[in-house]
Amino acid sequence: MALRGRRRPGPELTASLTGGAPGLPAPSELELGRRAYRARRSRRSTGVALVSTLVFAVVAYLVVTRSPGWPRVQTTFFSLSVGRDAFPSILRGLWLNLQVLLIGGACVVVLGLGIAVLRTLRGPAFAPLRLLATGYVDLFRGMPLIITLYLVGFGLPALRLQGVPNSPFVLGTLAIVLTYSAYVAEVFRAGIESVHPSQRAAARSLGLTHRQTTRIVVLPQAVRNVTPALLNDFVALQKDVGLISVLGAVDAVRAAQIYVGQTFNFTPYVVAGLLFVLLAVPSARIADGVAARARRRQQSGSVL
């Protein structure tokens, strides 16, 4: 990944927390007082957060379970037995979603990066390419994903062209890649533009060609700048892969749907939904962590 190799130890930080770096003078009364105050304050805000969360949870629980329709809702949406029966086939479907996610995600990065680079090319010779890339982004960023899915999933096979696959898995992935590449291209482009022109000047003055400059100097910095935003898009992609079900691919959503159709119980949807959430949580935490690290790097130690 782009963030490789920049991990730095923070001896100052750990030392100030444990208060005992060798060679550091013993903390003064003043500093001890400040530390005690900070600790008190953080204990208090943790307490407030805990209590308010608890109160909210209890209230929400009571309101829902005391509602007149609750018994019915419980049996149709939260039936343990139906959930257990549906679980294996939904999980098998989720494996398909995961494949779409990984293959599609990789394609999105490559295509998005390519389009972003095309959009930043200067000079009249590249005008047609630039125009094409801009048109692509405008089209697929504006088009609702569901419509792209229908057009690609049903329109493309209808052409009956030689060699066009008609598996909903392939076509669904293609539609998702088309849409997401447009978004990701814009993220990359913002990253490329965030690298100061003086970096380019420095690289060119060393004799690097335009291409080398882009590849060795600009893109690595651009990618590093936009990694948090990219991870955010990845989390969004994670749930949108569930949309391939509209093409008939038997993914987690479709598997749940089949089950719902048989039992008239909506619990399988809840199961599928929770599985998607579980899938998203690690990526969301990684995204948070990366964003926090990027922030730290920019401020290098400031508390604000």
Partner: peptide, 29 residues
């Protein structure tokens, strides 16, 4: 590009490449 290869330029704002180590900055060209 061939001309710039024969020149050395140092800028007011250093313009080192922040994602490369000191050594990699120097050996890049």
């Amino acid at each position: 590009d061939a001309v710039r290869r024969r020149l050395g330029v140092v800028f007011q704002a250093y313009n080192l490449f922040p994602h490369l180590s000191v050594l990699d900055n120097v050996v890049l060209a």
